[in-house]
Amino acid sequence: MKRSSLQTAALLLVPTLFVACFFMVPLIYAVGLSFGLPNFTAESYHHLVDSPVYRIVYLKTLKVALITTVTCLLLGYPTAYFVSRLHPRARATAVMLIALPFMLSVLVRNYVWMTMLQDTGVINRLLMNLGFTKEPVQLMYNQLGVTIAMVNMLVPYVIFPVLTSLMAIPPNLKVASASLGGNRLSTFLRVTLPLTATGTAAGALLTFIIALGFYITPAMLGGPREMMISSLIAFNVREVLNWPFAFSLATTLLGSTIVLYLAYRAVAPRGVVVKPI
């Protein structure tokens, strides 16, 4: 039975109002404040451009997010592929295990990584006891430590959308490919990969956007140079109450995210939809 459009509109009204009131209005207010509402001044933006710190930190933030996303893709896709081929019961267990870390707070997981990665940590003691190295290997207080911990936190955002799109592929397509003379590699490259492109791209985008907002993890596992734009926003909001400047940083970050998203839309793989015949 088809719902009338009036009913649909009525159903959508509540969530729309909710998003408008509690998300769009504050967001517009924040953008307004960054321009010195109720007056108009671009002072905050001038300062942002004039000081070398912010440009460097923006680039650093983008770099960290990019490295994290690429690593998540390289680890997440094969994992999802493996999980998709498991027996349904084993698959349910695997999905639960992947989701399990979500139940621990980010702060706790940072501490766990610290005890694993520091000079006197589990990994270094193991390496030294087994005679692989005499001096501890520097695994944290640098980009490496930040990447390891961020990938650990974000890889499920790649695994789940990829897994969903893998599961949506009708099994007989593989048989069809084989019957047409495709080997496993060409079946993967010409059938599986294109059919999961949308899910993979969505996972990558999600990971990238979430990674842009990280700051506790880089602050704890990175060195003094691992500075993220969010930590500067938090400092200005919480410590010195310089909201116009904090919001100009936030608006710039939001703006660049939107630009990246539009760029993604322009080049993103159009979803290949398999229609039953």
Partner: peptide, 21 residues
């Protein structure tokens, strides 16, 4: 600048000192 452990969260320090990091 290069040779210290730069920490941000006060509770971090207990673990850093006890583990002799």
């Amino acid at each position: 600048k290069r040779d210290a452990v730069w920490w941000t969260q006060f509770p971090q320090v207990e673990q850093m000192l006890l583990s002799k990091e």
